[in-house]
Structures are given as C-alpha cells and as structure tokens.
C-alpha cells in the first residue's frame, strides 16, 4: 500500500468518524430537547441496552433464527434467479411468461406481499418467502443483463470452433455474467434482510428480531425499539460486508 493511499484511507476514517459523531450529538441534543423517554431514547441508553441484550439468551436465539430464515430466502432467490435467467435466455417464451412476475415483484410494495402471504404461508416461512421475493428479481435481472452482454464476436468464435456448451459457458457467459451477478448478490442481501425483518413484524414467528421489535412497540418500550433497530442496522452492515468479502474472494 502506498503512503498516499494510507493517508487517503486514514482521512476517510476520520471523516466517517466525525460524521457519525455529529449525528450522535444531534440525536443526543434532540433527546435533551424533547426530554421524553416514550418518544425517543438517547444514544447512550441505546448502546447500554444493546450490551444488556447481548447477555440475554433470547436475543441470540432471535438473531440466529432471523438470520437463518432470511439467508434461506436469499439463497433460494439467488439460485432460482440464476436458473430462471438461464432458462429465460434460452426460451423467449419462458422469459415473456416471467416478465410480469418480475415487474410486479419489483414495483409492488413489500407490505402488499406480506399481507397477501400471511393468508397462505406459515409465520415461520413468511420471512423466507419475502426475502426470496426481494432477491429473486434482482438476481434474475442482473444475470439476464450479464447473459445479454456476452460478446457476440466471441460467441461466433465458439460457434465456428464447435465449443461444447460447458466451454462456452465457462469462457464467454461466466465472465460476462460475473460482474452483474456479484453486484446483484451483494446488493440483494441488504434488501432481503430489510424485507425479511418486515415480514417477521407482520408474521410474528416465535423467535425473531421482527417479533421482538413489534413487541417493543406494542409495550411502548421505546428504548428496545431503538436498540433492536440498531441491531438490525448493524447486522445488515455486517452481513453485507461479509457477503462482499466472500464474493470478492470467490471472484
């Protein structure tokens, strides 16, 4: 790493820390101004509450259950997204058939699906389904775009030299799809996570972050609402970071 890049990185960290401190200070000022625990919790009490939660077994059970459910939906969405994109590229009829589904899932609000899905799906599986619903169209569209970006000149090379399908996939389609797929996978996790938690808030499965958040709201435990929200944000950042790191290593 060069001296200038180290300097740049350090500068970036300082700026980020200052920005964070500014907003925490603004939050604290607002707390002091409102002076009402039911309306807003102070940043320090939220941090203290998160540390308390870390020593409660139910916290970890809820976190792990939510993570598992949402990752299940994420993986399902990713795998089916890739498969359907491949099928869509091969069979235009399949692509046309799927087109309205993709448009609807991309444009309709998450809550509409959650409310509808509540009628059909068990509370445990709802977050899986909602997370899947967010991830699937993103991966599908990304992979389709990647397939379409495959170099037609190299495809002609593959054709005239009679490359087997596997070789064409490995040498032409995979490199074309890879950047779209990696971007899709790293972006989709954040969306899947948020949508999955929303699903839990409606479905209220026994052990879930969404359920804990909902209960905190019902019992007017504003501090817990803030603490669970902070946990959701921190976990979202952590998962996104981990997925990006994993994808970077794979790429």
């Amino acid at each position: 790493m060069t001296t200038s890049s180290i300097r740049n990185k350090r500068k970036k960290i300082i700026v980020r820390t200052l920005v964070a401190l500014f907003w925490i200070a603004a939050w604290q000022v607002l707390c002091l101004f409102l002076d009402n625990d039911l309306l807003i919790a102070s940043p320090f009490s939220v941090i203290r509450r998160i540390f308390e939660l870390l020593f409660v077994g139910e916290f970890w059970v809820s976190v792990l259950n939510s993570l598992l459910r949402i990752l299940e939906g994420y993986l399902l969405g990713a795998v089916l997204g890739i498969l359907c994109a491949a099928l869509g590229a091969l069979f235009p009829f399949f692509s046309a058939l799927l087109s309205p589904v993709i448009t609807i899932t991309k444009t309709a609000p998450v809550t509409s699906f959650v409310i509808l899905a509540l009628v059909w799906i068990k509370s445990y599986n709802l977050a899986v389904f909602i997370s899947f619903l967010m991830v699937f169209p993103m991966i599908y569209s990304g992979v389709r775009e990647g397939i379409e970006s495959a170099d037609p000149k190299l495809l002609e090379v593959a054709k005239v030299y009679h490359f087997p399908v596997r070789k064409t996939l490995r040498l032409i389609y995979y490199p074309a799809i890879k950047p779209f797929l990696l971007t899709g996978l790293s972006t989709a996790i954040g969306f899947g996570w948020k949508a999955g938690i929303t699903g839990e808030i409606f479905a209220l499965p026994k052990h879930a972050i969404g359920t804990r958040l909902y209960e905190s709201k019902i019992y007017l435990e504003t501090l817990d609402v803030f603490a669970w929200t902070a946990v959701i944000i921190l976990l979202s950042l952590l998962i996104e970071k981990l997925i990006r790191l994993m994808l970077k290593r794979m790429g």
């Binding site: 000149k153 190299l154 002609e156 090379v157 005239v160 030299y161 490359f163 040498l171 490199p175």
Partner: peptide, 23 residues
C-alpha cells in the same frame, strides 16, 4: 474449418498459449 476473423477475437483472460490452444 479453421477461421481467422478480421478482428483477433481473443479471450482477454486467457494467456497467449491458452488462446492458441482453445479450439
């Protein structure tokens, strides 16, 4: 049929040897 297109149409991530032996 062995083909040499107007453009080289090489695979950018394969070495010269890998490109030469790709077909």
């Amino acid at each position: 049929i062995s083909v040499l297109f107007q453009e080289d149409r090489l695979f950018p991530f394969l070495t010269a040897k890998e490109n030469a032996l790709v077909a």
